[in-house]
Design a protein around this nucleic acid. Structure first.
Length: 646
RNA sequence: GCCGGAGUAGCUCAGUGGUAGAGCAACGCAUUCGUAAUGCGUAGGUCGUCAGUUCGACUCUGACCUUCGGCUCCA
């Protein structure tokens, strides 16, 4: 204690302190404001609790509550306090784990086992109330290190079976630490805030769900309680508002409100009805898609919805994914299956005649409707369905064409997504799974080709080890929905395996037979899912080029009805989607109806002034009042927007 | 598939062991109005489905279907 140590701070300054100085003391010595905002500290790169005494020369930065690292600590501590609260209400509870999570909806959870009588939504306010009490009591979080036997005994005594199991699974040399706050003690690496008061009042207990012990579906299911914590109450309030806002943008809500689609019960789960307005938007998406493919060197092909089981036997689907396919139907004594993928058909097209190296690459694209028997519990609006249309394409290449074509595909993906105003995606490189076909060397080559493409294009990506398809590695692009969930849309997959299974070949320069390489790729992924994401992305307010109705002409009074109808007819004849509203309603009501409720991009008002001038008073949903203009000017404006796809 | 909610009018929801209500939307009438809700009226429901308990079930019980929040899964 007598000796002093040198502490280097983030600004480079060095402080001389007595050895054994704690983070709390250090923070106080730097400034009161900092001490108040401090929740943990990073010592030589390792984040620890502020109660930790500093014994050696080191570099220290104080972690404050408003930083991502600080919030992580607050949320972790809040999880402990929540477990404490649940334990006070239900002493028989057995705890499993309660980490902070990186999810926009929730900050942390705790998995608990409550035996016969789980908790219900009605219990959540009580838990939150109890948490607030514990926070108010400002109980210190104290770290304790114990030998394995003592740690085990403590958990056995407290009936924490899951914690005992956790201890038993810790490696031999692991340091076993606990954090104690009052009566509550939990096996934990930490770090935690110095005392429960530091968590603050920006907390909430939000929802409950089931979760498997050990994240393994063959294990018992426990109760997961989700909560959130922020640096302060105002941020928690903002978060609640964001959740409300996201709810309003939820594609299922908007799909009903705007009459875009439905997934009504009698159809069967996971099947979608596209209503006229949703169908029209899909039509525009498909139109754009076809045009871009034809311009991009693709050919458009079609294939049937069912095929004989033998085809799926050859492709390997029956061996690998039978349980994800709809049951077979008996046709003339043969089993037929609904297609879960389009690739075997395109391969059959390739094999339908002799191919030359001169013809490659083939780029064959299809909007192919596939059926997959997804588990009932995973179905979700348009995002996860059982019948959907893939914007699929298969490229058949000479091996030397692989690198270039992969790069082309990835570029195409980005171009298409950007056309729909998506700028933020998550790119993932998925490598060889445990269950795979083909040769490891081929996998390496293909993985390298994918990685090269990402690097040449300068794209940030992460690696998902073992996340590849059974036939090859892939690049996946995910898009975020309004609730912060990521959904996979685009995919580019290399495949050396299907060509072998289907014994594909082309005639090479020297007259010999060579095996082609395949790329599977989808840009939008599933039209259903993409549409769902698009609805949320635009909040139902589709840009002019996609909007089912681009403009509504509103008559002010009865004497303007004829003129309004004529203008709508005129603009319709020019190829725009324009209707007139000549109801005897007030203009404010009509504006509200069309611009805000139905989210039509433009309204144009026709009253005495406009009848006289022959023009329109135009207003845009987002850009506001655009003033009076002639029909020609308005038509020009619409054309401009459509041409620019906005 | 698993855990836990929910299903009443087109939508959002209230309601009770004795065969149902509100607001918005729809429709009709009146109003003819200048940029985010005009008034009055009418109509609309086998209370998810099927069984069971009961004198009687929308209400209680069970199964199933659908759906919501997660978990597992996602070629």
């Amino acid at each position: 204690m007598s000796s002093s140590i040198q502490i280097t701070l983030p600004d480079g300054s060095v402080r001389e302190c007595p050895a054994g100085t704690t983070g709390l003391e250090l923070a106080k010595s730097i400034g009161r404001g900092l001490a108040k905002a401090a929740v943990a500290m990073t010592v030589d790169g390792v984040t620890v609790t502020l109660r930790e005494p500093l014994q050696r020369d080191c570099t220290v930065s104080i972690v404050t509550r408003d930083t991502p690292a600080g919030l992580d600590v607050i949320r972790h501590s809040a999880a402990h306090v929540m477990a404490d609260a649940i334990r006070q209400i239900r002493p028989e509870v057995k705890l499993w784990k309660g980490p902070p999570v990186d999810d926009p909806r929730y900050g942390f959870y705790y998995d608990v086992d409550l035996g016969e009588h789980g908790i219900t939504l009605d219990d959540l306010p009580d838990i939150e109330q109890r948490m607030r009490q514990i926070i108010k009591q400002d109980v210190p979080f104290e770290r304790e290190v114990m030998p394995r036997s003592a740690a085990r005994q403590l958990m056995v005594e407290r009936g924490e079976d899951y914690k005992v199991a956790t201890i038993d699974r810790l490696p031999e040399d692991a340091e076993i630490s606990f954090f104690r706050s009052g009566e509550f003690v939990d096996l934990c690496k930490g770090p935690h805030v110095p005392s429960t008061g530091s968590i603050g009042d920006g907390i909430a207990v939000l929802s409950i769900a089931g979760a498997y012990f050990g994240d393994d579906a063959s294990n018992k299911m426990l109760t997961r309680v989700y909560g959130h914590a922020f640096a302060d109450k105002a941020q928690m309030e903002t978060h609640r508002q964001n959740l409300e806002e996201a709810k309003k943008r939820d594609h299922r809500r908007l799909g009903t409100d705007l009459d875009l689609f439905s997934t009504m019960g009698d159809l069967g789960a996971g099947l979608v009805l596209w209503h006229p307005k949703g169908g029209f938007i899909r039509h525009k998406i498909e139109e754009f898609w076809r045009q871009q493919h034809l311009e991009g060197g693709y050919d458009i092909v079609y294939s049937p919805h069912v095929a004989r089981a033998t085809l799926w036997q050859t492709s390997g689907h029956l061996d690998f994914y039978r349980e994800s396919m709809y049951s077979p139907m008996d046709i003339d004594g043969n089993d037929y299956l609904l297609k879960p993928m389009n690739c075997p058909f395109h391969i059959q097209m390739f094999n339908s005649r002799r191919r030359s190296y001169r013809d490659l690459p083939f780029r064959w694209a299809e909007l192919g409707t596939v059926y997959r028997y997804e588990s009932a519990g995973t179905l979700h609006g348009l995002m996860r369905v059982r019948g959907f249309t893939q914007d699929d394409a298969h490229l058949f290449l000479r091996p030397d064409q692989l690198d270039e074509e992969i790069e082309r595909c990835v570029k195409f993906v980005l171009f298409i997504l950007r056309a729909f105003d998506f700028e933020h995606f998550e790119i993932m490189l998925s490598t060889r799974p445990d269950k795979f076909v083909g040769e490891p060397e081929q996998w390496d080559t293909a993985t390298q080709a994918l990685e090269n493409a990402l690097q040449r294009l300068g794209l940030a990506y992460s690696v998902d080890p073992g996340g590849g398809a059974f036939y090859g590695p892939k690049i996946d692009v995910k898009i975020k929905d309004s609730l912060g969930r990521y959904w996979q849309c685009s995919t580019v997959q290399a495949d050396f395996t299907q060509p072998v299974r289907f014994d594909m070949s082309y005639v090479d320069k020297d007259g010999g037979r060579t095996r082609p390489v395949m790329i599977h790729r989808a840009l939008l992924g599933s039209l259903e899912r993409f549409f769902g994401i698009l609805v949320e992305h635009y909040g139902g307010a589709f840009p002019t080029w996609l909007a089912p109705v681009q403009a509504t002409i509103l008559s002010v009074g009865e004497r303007h009805a004829e003129r309004a109808a004529a203008l709508a007819a005129d603009l319709s004849a020019r190829g725009f989607r324009v209707v007139a509203d000549v109801d005897a309603e007030k203009i404010g009501q009509k504006i509200r109806q069309h611009l805000w409720t139905e989210r039509v991009p433009f309204v144009a008002v026709v009253g005495d002034q406009e009848v006289e001038s022959g023009g329109l008073a135009v207003r845009h949903r987002a850009d506001g009042d655009l003033g009076a203009m002639s029909v020609e000017a308005f038509a020009e404006m619409l054309s401009q927007r459509v041409a620019e796809r906005r």
